[in-house]
Design a protein around this nucleic acid. Structure first.
Length: 486
RNA sequence: GGCCCUAUCGUCUAGUGGUUAGGACACACCCCUUUCACGGGUGCGGCACGAGUUCGAAUCUCGUUAGGGCUACCA
């Protein structure tokens, strides 16, 4: 099959088409790390003509919230990530999970453990004191029927643990990290797969669901490395084909800790970027380019542009530090790539939220207005700041003292008066060209600045000729008169 | 503590035994320009350390160090 990636020297047991998935848990908003993993999965699916499956990992009943489900779906869509199947909900497969637990129990591959949390805690403390690895010592692996009965009579309810192989190398060929090997005895003991109350746990449910959904490639964060070692024996015990794994690097904060939604909500939430007016293509570009270099050499690209050449095997293996400056640069780049009409359309809600009276100009004028400032933008709302003077005459009293003084100078007043005179006979577009002759001043700052100040209330801004023609003769005259009257 | 991963400019990276170690962000300067921004140019700055293998090591091996992750009846 041509879904086999260049780096996959090992043969696989899948003859079907490639299937990948993203399984966020709705216990918080969609965050950068999940979005990036989703991006990589999406890219691989599209690149190799596979299917991208979306599943909600909602087995944690107390922490899962419906509003997070909406947030995750909206966030993924906003980024331009589409899925072929789902969203499935892990919680809907409860009966299936129970059956598999039973199956494991009957086959002797799982067992009941009656240890109390206090007992477990005590065990760990002792291990810690002796400088030994912490973990469950598998003490209830071989309980007799009588012993179990005794525990039950004492009111204890069992958890179900999966029997891990003893002292066995668990190996896999990781698509991004190469040969991986973990010893089964370094996994902290037999893992609990079902709680006392019967709820199944992540490491178990994920295996069942991934298998049932026919997932062929599991692409997830590096923080799952040890989970993979726990999950592979589960696949094997169940007689299921073991999927291929790829562990992508983590995103770190400046202080070099794993980016978490809880601790770093200020930079981690996708919804926040959307609400702040970031361009989704910039976020996507940054997230993908963070660990992957486009072979074209092009740093600025869209998701669609990345698909044909994306390759998991060529992504970096080391964690990357989140760099806001670079993100902002991508933002700027994508504003430049977008047409003015497109930028206007996307900014419209922000413009309206800022209570600008858009009806003062026609659509073509609004788009031209955007073209004047578009290339320096990093976020949508900046447009309202840069364009607001078009909609409301400047409050000259708010000018800095130096600028107010400059405006009060004779030469400045001369420029403004001359402009007013000239406008009686010439169109605004011609104003700048006529001013030097009329005033005897050199063209440049002496002429431009008074006009800019009087017209926009700012010392800096977009091209003055563009501003003049957009403002139109009526507004220009009105603003000049106001300024002279001050 | 145990296990695992990682290691090229401040940051993101290219590089798979022979390169003046390349690019991007940021920073500084210059050019363009009425201003800001954009754009163009220049500069600053790096192979963590130590052994080994080799004619030759950023690249291979080992060790050290540093950083990160995991270590739940969370996901």
């Amino acid at each position: 099959m041509d879904y086999i990636m260049p780096c996959m020297s090992e043969t696989t047991n899948f003859n079907s088409t490639l299937r990948v998935r993203i399984p966020p848990s709705p216990t918080g908003q969609l965050h950068l790390g999940t979005a990036r993993t989703a991006l990589y999965n999406f890219l691989v699916a599209r690149r190799y003509g596979g299917k991208f499956v979306f599943r909600l990992e909602d087995t944690d009943k107390v922490r899962s919230k419906p509003e997070y489900v909406d947030d995750i779906i909206d966030g993924l869509k906003w980024l331009g990530i589409s899925w072929d199947e789902g969203p499935f909900r892990q919680s809907e497969h409860f009966a299936r999970h129970k059956r598999v637990v039973e199956q494991l129990l009957e086959a002797g591959l799982a067992y009941e453990c009656f240890c109390s949390s206090a007992e477990l805690e005590e065990m760990k403390l002792a291990q810690r004191e002796q400088n030994k690895a912490e973990g469950y010592d598998n003490r209830h692996r071989q309980l007799s029927a009588q012993e179990k009965e005794a525990f039950r009579e004492a009111g204890r309810k069992p958890t179900i643990r999966f029997r891990l192989p003893d002292d066995e190398k668990i190996e896999w060929n990781d698509l991004v990290r190469g040969k991986m090997s973990v010893n089964s005895s370094d996994l902290g003991g037999d893992p609990v797969i079902a709680k006392e109350n019967g709820d199944v746990l992540y490491n178990f449910a994920v295996v069942v669901d991934d298998n049932d959904l026919g997932i062929t490639h599991i692409i997830r964060g590096e923080d799952h490395l040890h989970n993979t070692a726990k999950q592979i024996p589960l696949y094997q015990a169940l007689g299921w084909p073991v999927p291929l794994f790829a562990h992508v690097p983590l995103i770190l904060t400046v202080t070099r800790e794993k980016l978490s939604k809880r601790k770093h909500g200020d930079i981690a939430s996708i919804a926040m970027y959307r609400d702040l007016g970031y361009l989704p293509e910039a976020i996507v570009n940054y997230l993908v380019a963070m660990s992957w270099t486009n072979p074209s050499g092009e740093e600025v690209f869209t998701l669609d542009e990345a698909i044909p050449s994306f390759d998991l095997c060529s992504i970096s293996r080391s964690a990357a530090v989140y760099d806001r400056e670079k993100l902002l640069w991508f933002c700027k780049q994508h504003f430049q790539r977008l047409s003015s009409a497109e930028v206007f359309e996307r900014a419209q809600i922000h413009l309206e939220a800022a209570k600008l009276d858009l009806s003062a100009y026609d659509h073509a004028e609004l788009v031209t207005m955007v073209s004047l400032v578009k290339d320096g933008l990093t976020m949508l709302p900046e447009l309202t700041e840069k364009l607001s003077f078009f909609f409301q005459p400047p409050t000259l009293s708010k000018l800095a003292e130096a600028e107010r003084n400059f405006l009060a100078e004779d030469n400045s007043k001369l420029v403004l008066k001359a402009s007013l005179d000239l406008l009686e006979t010439i169109p605004v577009e011609k104003l700048l060209a006529e001013l030097p002759a009329k005033t005897g001043l050199k063209k440049g700052r002496a002429i431009m600045l008074p006009l800019r100040l009087a017209l926009t209330g700012e010392g800096h801004g977009p091209d003055l000729i563009g501003v003049l023609s957009l403002l139109g003769k009526v507004r220009v005259k009105e603003r000049l008169e106001r300024s002279l009257a001050e």
